[in-house]
């Protein structure tokens, strides 16, 4: 175990605990910025994670970074220099010093401003209920709300993209009305169609591609969430605000 505490930890604001760093393998580091895993991290903390990801992104080439993956209150990075697949077998001359990169990031972390990254506001048109949202009734049964009420509350929310993962372009959204939280289905569906708008526990999401899964499908959107041919393949990016627009149904 190669975890260590931040040397600058004591000077951090009370909202931010000392990061925990783990060396996952020779080319991979995981930084965890919160101890509380019971709920989504505070937005102020997540904004710092985005700021760190942006700082690293600017230095992707010079630091020889391969992957920079912001998660929920954490960030994973890997370097290309020590990757078997992604770089020439000749690049092994200098094995990159991940310890010094780790120290650099720990010193940087408390100085990162948690200022807003320029998130856009994206409106997602949704057809709710019926064939488009076969589980709307189940969410109604669980929450005790009427389908119309569920739609109104789902559309009233303002959702923040915390990070992307699971599928290409799949956004982890914060901000679901707590009254709409519904457990995953006891038996997962074999197919959740691309474009499905769903609720799983206290989260909501739009599925960019077809997949099996247990989330409750309440609607469908025709928006293309991910297109690998585009310069910017993902419709949603961390920091963006999302609103759902009711296009009918229920």
């Amino acid at each position: 175990m190669t975890a260590k505490e931040s040397p600058a930890g004591s000077s951090l604001s009370t909202a931010v605990v000392a990061p925990r760093v783990t060396r996952l393998r020779e080319n991979t580091l995981l930084f965890s910025f919160t101890d509380d895993h019971s709920k989504a991290p505070e937005l102020i903390l997540q904004k710092r994670v985005w700021a760190l990801a942006a700082w690293l992104e600017e230095r992707r080439e010079s630091l020889g970074l391969l992957e920079i993956v912001p998660g929920m209150g954490n960030l994973l990075l890997s370097t290309a220099v020590q990757s078997v697949g992604a770089c020439s077998t000749r690049d092994s001359a200098g094995i990159f010093d991940l310890d010094s990169l780790s120290d650099q990031i720990l010193i940087l972390w408390p100085t990162l401003a948690s200022t807003d990254i320029k998130g856009r506001t994206i409106e997602i048109p949704v057809i709710y209920g019926g064939d488009a949202g076969p589980d709307l009734k189940e969410v109604a049964a669980h929450t005790g709300l009427s389908p119309d009420d569920i739609i109104a509350r789902h559309c009233a929310g303002e959702y923040r993209v915390y990070c992307l993962g699971f599928q290409p372009g799949f956004a982890y959204l914060g901000g679901l009305d707590a009254a709409l939280a519904t457990p995953r289905r006891a038996t997962p569906r074999l197919v959740i169609p691309a474009g499905s708008v769903a609720i799983g526990g206290s989260q909501t999401a739009v599925y960019p591609s077809t997949t099996p899964g247990g989330w409750q499908i309440i609607g469908h959107s025709v928006l293309k969430m991910f297109d690998p041919e585009q310069v910017q393949p993902s419709l949603l990016m961390p920091g963006d605000l999302v609103r759902f627009i009711n296009m009918g149904g229920s």
Binding site: R25, H37, N74
Partner: peptide, 30 residues
């Protein structure tokens, strides 16, 4: 309980069954 975090091929996850899964190339990213 863990917050979602980046994962890579070769990571050994242990779901509630207690039986490990070694993630491979087509594994999800988080």
């Amino acid at each position: 309980e863990l917050l979602s975090a980046g994962v890579l091929p070769g990571d050994v996850q242990v779901p509630s069954s207690g039986l490990p899964i070694v993630l491979a190339n087509d594994a999800q990213t988080i």
